[in-house]
Write a protein that binds this DNA or RNA. Sequence first.
DNA 1: AATGAATGAGGGTTCATTCAT
DNA 2: CATGAATGAACCCTCATTCAT
Lengths: 223, 223, 223, 223
Amino acid sequence: MSANDLSRYDQKLEFILRSAAQIFADKSYHSTSMRDISRATNVSLAGLYHYCKRKEELLFLIQDNCFGRVLERLEERLVDVNDPVVKLQIFIENHLSFFAANMAEMKVLSHEAESLQGDLHAHVSGKKDKYTKLATNILQNVHSPEDGKVNLTVATYALFGMMNWIYNWYDPKGQLKVSDLAQNLTQLFLEGFAPGSVNETTNKLRRQPENLSIWRGVERSRG
Amino acid sequence: MSANDLSRYDQKLEFILRSAAQIFADKSYHSTSMRDISRATNVSLAGLYHYCKRKEELLFLIQDNCFGRVLERLEERLVDVNDPVVKLQIFIENHLSFFAANMAEMKVLSHEAESLQGDLHAHVSGKKDKYTKLATNILQNVHSPEDGKVNLTVATYALFGMMNWIYNWYDPKGQLKVSDLAQNLTQLFLEGFAPGSVNETTNKLRRQPENLSIWRGVERSRG
Amino acid sequence: MSANDLSRYDQKLEFILRSAAQIFADKSYHSTSMRDISRATNVSLAGLYHYCKRKEELLFLIQDNCFGRVLERLEERLVDVNDPVVKLQIFIENHLSFFAANMAEMKVLSHEAESLQGDLHAHVSGKKDKYTKLATNILQNVHSPEDGKVNLTVATYALFGMMNWIYNWYDPKGQLKVSDLAQNLTQLFLEGFAPGSVNETTNKLRRQPENLSIWRGVERSRG
Amino acid sequence: MSANDLSRYDQKLEFILRSAAQIFADKSYHSTSMRDISRATNVSLAGLYHYCKRKEELLFLIQDNCFGRVLERLEERLVDVNDPVVKLQIFIENHLSFFAANMAEMKVLSHEAESLQGDLHAHVSGKKDKYTKLATNILQNVHSPEDGKVNLTVATYALFGMMNWIYNWYDPKGQLKVSDLAQNLTQLFLEGFAPGSVNETTNKLRRQPENLSIWRGVERSRG
DNA sequence: AATGAATGAGGGTTCATTCAT
DNA sequence: CATGAATGAACCCTCATTCAT
């Protein structure tokens, strides 16, 4: 077997993964059938099983590759960077540019985290944790010690929320360039939407003992 | 049929919806079977069809009720409020307290938006648009005209991202109270994580023409 | 639900089991598809799953019912019988008449013992052991203590072999009646084929160190 | 292609057949996949098809070789033997020693007779018939003409049943040596388990018109 | 209102087999 | 001789849904 053959197998696998990611992104992992993927790739149904053991493995490969590359590229770019704020800028830019260049895969990453089970889930979760901790570390250093107003965990997940939510609205081919998006979100996250505007009434907001059940007039009994 | 019967019917429907929402939240709409719901509610499989025409209607009712109540409650609370910042505070608090009190339903709202199709999808989308526009309006008024640094659309969706992402990590029964969460996120959104820290290098960040494909060494060809 | 309905369900289950047994007997459990059974019973493929959880359960029910009834009927008939030889006669007659009346099921019992797995296998195996031990006990009492020429285990399994092998040749609708078959085998087992004829040369038979491999001229290497 | 190559080919075929027989014996012909055999032999899936046209041919070769060698060896050993009883002794010893030396193949022979179809089935069936008739002939001569108590066909198949059943229980590596097994079964077949013990009540055994259906309380309706 | 029974459609996966290399 | 890749057919099983009762 020549190196060329090996490469052909890999290229086809990548093609399948790319197609699968697109369909997973469009109609969710669970409502995508192997027949859908077979149709989209022009690979026979049985043929797909040369490239994966199970449907779940396709999802795994997509997610694992995603995290792998994002992490890898991030670490490369953070080498020799010391300024915490610059680190954060790089982090956000890296995440978003990757997201924008691989919208389908990144949506699958954000949206189908729990569709993986067992070992596959554990493996991806591990990478996710590593990535999350890296973000938390960066944020921790951004902060000057005295102003601990905002909970670090909340801030981390808020940042991820801001970034990952973009699959719901952002179009990489539209007007707004990725670099602008990154700059906007960095600015927003660091400086806020309306600096200096937090009202003193904030703390006075009181929630009446209202019925918060979705269903009108019915008391919620949970568990 | 007496009013009493009607009420009983409604109560049972709500019970079914609540149960369904929980399962949808746990294992996604598409991997939930009507048998799962039948099992969880102790209503026979056929019996469920007295309370909904199709499985999709269950999802619709959950989402519609969710948006309906959030919107309704928000509008009530915004009456007689004029200060834009206070409006925003109320908006965030309303959204999050509702979310925390109805985690399952709100996760379903965030996560299964595209699982609805046709008219049902259009109907919920309408409410979502209304809600989104309301948020955009509030944000627009928060801003003093001169400082248009951050794109309004970006800001709106960033806010939603921050809030809706919580189903991935927030535990309403944990240490962090909803009111604290709301205050943190409000603070973060308005004032930012590290006021005054945005580095001048921001604009100088340059992305090399790197290969941003998920798959190592393979150029991306899309569509 | 009336008793009539219950009975109808049971009757249909029995009909399915009977049909399944016939097909299992004809073409083996593993090459019988649920579609085969669906076709034979005029029950839709999905409909079969109202009567069993899995294909394997059909096999289990057939085997379990088989052993259950054979054992049950045998125990009834052995009550108040003391003469060991009569006991053996009853045992053989019971086994063979049952076999002849339920050729398909009994073939499945003999032939598909290992097609069951896990708990189902264990359960049937338990009954089989019980039945086998009962046979061994009967044989043990038949023997007068002094003449221990024939190993008891060998005798037990030889008896089972004689009886269970009939699915390979016996036709219950043919000339030879079951009662004759039973009498023949009983006679054969107890008195032998040619009383008094065992030659003294028996022990002198010597096996040359021949090559016993199936494959001509190739020495067998096992394990 | 040299003779050496041919020999190598044959050796590999035998290795494959041996492996296949083992797996067929373990999990039945129909649940054995070509992939199973490929795995066990370390021959690629496609490579197997250099040694057989179809999966069924593997089964055929195993069974055909089995019968061929048993018959061949038997005929060799019967040359110059005249005493009918000695003939029978040789027959039994030959069968059992062969069985014990080739448990897997012989189990496949006994167990998968009907898994062959068409010409292949006919061919093996022919050899089986020849073998069976040889046995019947031997038995016929053992008998003194006057004592026709036991039906000859019944006796023949009873003998085969006793011998072939051993794959269900006999362990060639256990305590009981093959020679002992052969002697036991010969003794048992010729002299019976309890000579002189057949009770006069034999004929009086009467079967009540009992329900012999496997399924309790349901009358049997067959075909 | 409620449900047991039933089913067509489709799910993921494995099969024996072929063929280009 | 050997094999990686490929595939149509078939596997077991579950699905959402309907209908007679």
